[in-house]
């Protein structure tokens, strides 16, 4: 997708499982437009190395000792606004997904993603567009729904989705790619991206998430 001659995207891996890091590294190294510049296995290591290396994209594990991906984001986001974070996790739990998005990640993909799709997701977040897995789209739809039991909207600008955004999210949840969504809704890919960015912003800023639902949900183990 990138034009020939452009610099490869510099990617940094953060995951506490060395086996998984080497797997992702091997897969991404096969893709020409992406190069892995470093990896870290803990929050402190990651913070120091990202500060030093200034990669384009950081692939961030959600679950790590010492606070996980959200903690890395908390420490690095304010000082490095140009570094893009993409969460990569085995966890499918709403609280994890939403927490890391709200901490500032530009997207969320699950670890079962193929190497090619991962490279594509990296390229997409690098160019500023969010990456929503179908699951994440489903969660966001659920949170913004007006089903009984949902939190009432406070600020309508932030707490409600427009009809178009809802349509786009639905198609994302149905497994459509941006291009397919554009075709389906008769809009340009750029417009789809704008809608998804706006949904991401609302997801990060709306306080419909300060719900007891995620706070009081306790997982076992």
């Amino acid at each position: 997708m990138t034009e020939p001659g452009t610099e490869p995207i510099r990617v940094f891996l953060v995951d506490d499982h060395a086996l998984f890091r080497s797997g992702v590294r091997a897969e991404l190294d096969r893709v020409a437009e992406v190069t892995v510049v470093g990896e870290a296995g803990s929050v402190d290591e990651a913070v120091a190395a990202v500060r030093h290396l200034l990669p384009d994209v950081v692939l961030l594990d959600v679950h790590m000792p010492d606070g996980g991906g959200a903690e890395v984001l908390r420490q690095l986001r304010p000082e490095l606004p140009d570094v893009v974070f993409l969460a990569l996790s085995v966890s499918d739990a709403a609280e994890d997904v939403i927490a890391v998005i709200r901490a500032g990640a530009r997207g969320y993909v699950t670890k079962t993603i193929s190497g090619r799709d991962l490279a594509e997701a990296v390229r997409r977040v690098k160019s500023g567009d969010p990456v929503f897995s179908p699951r994440l789209a489903g969660f966001v739809l659920d949170v913004f729904s007006d089903r009984p039991g949902a939190a009432p909207p406070g600020d309508p600008e932030l707490d409600l989705l427009t009809r178009r955004e809802r349509d786009v999210l639905r198609l994302l949840a149905r497994g459509y790619a941006y291009k397919e969504i554009a075709g389906e809704l008769f809009i340009s890919v750029k417009t789809v991206e704008t809608h998804v960015s706006s949904v991401l912003r609302k997801t990060q800023l709306s306080n419909r998430y300060e719900l007891s639902r995620w706070a009081s949900d306790r997982r076992l183990v």
């Binding site: 499918d92 709403a94 997904v97 699951r135």
Partner: peptide
């Protein structure tokens, strides 16, 4: 494993308020 950890929909086992 996933079902046991996060329940069928990913909201944890039996989400609150539902």
């Amino acid at each position: 494993l996933r079902h046991w950890l996060y329940g069928p929909t990913g909201y944890g086992r039996g989400a609150a308020g539902e």
